[in-house]
């Protein structure tokens, strides 16, 4: 059994740091031999959640940070995105594909993520904020 590997990056709550987060994730995903299609799905999913963490969680306050953690185990990889905001309940987000919402300009991010990854978990860390965890199963 191989050892778990984990990586961590903290960025200020600014869109200017999205490219840095992208490079961090893509670099480690490539290094661990993840295929290009999966990297594309994981990259868009992580970007959606990091954007949410910056804009909705931390309200673009540059003094608040977004923490991105990547972990590889034998069976899966996970990408956790943690903000320092007030928290939210994903079930409160209306469906973006319903007739009354389809022409709204926002509200599709989490829906897209759920469609692209194997699982999306939401945690409320004891220190506050919201942690969104993307799970991608790895072929054994």
């Amino acid at each position: 059994m191989s050892e778990n590997k984990s990586y961590r990056l903290e960025i200020p709550s600014s869109q200017n740091h999205l490219a840095e987060a992208d490079r961090f994730l893509e670099g480690h995903l490539k290094q661990h031999g993840i295929d290009q299609d999966s990297i594309a799905d994981l990259a868009i999913s992580a970007t959606e959640l990091i954007n949410n963490a910056i804009i909705h969680g931390n309200k673009s306050n540059p003094d608040k940070i977004v923490t991105i953690e990547l972990e590889f185990t034998d069976k899966h990889l996970s990408i956790s995105i943690t903000d320092q905001g007030p928290g939210f309940k994903p079930e409160d987000i209306p469906s973006p594909i319903s007739d009354e919402n389809i022409l709204k300009e926002a509200g599709r991010g989490i829906f897209i993520v759920r469609s692209l990854v194997d699982d999306l978990q939401v945690e409320e860390p004891p220190e506050g904020g919201t942690r969104m965890i993307i799970i991608k199963k790895l072929a054994s």
Binding site: T47, E105, G107, R108, I112
Partner: peptide
């Protein structure tokens, strides 16, 4: 080569 929910939002806004 890349679109996300913000880009989709812009296209919906443009459509309207």
């Amino acid at each position: 080569d890349f679109i996300n929910s913000s880009g989709l939002g812009t296209l919906v806004s443009t459509l309207k």
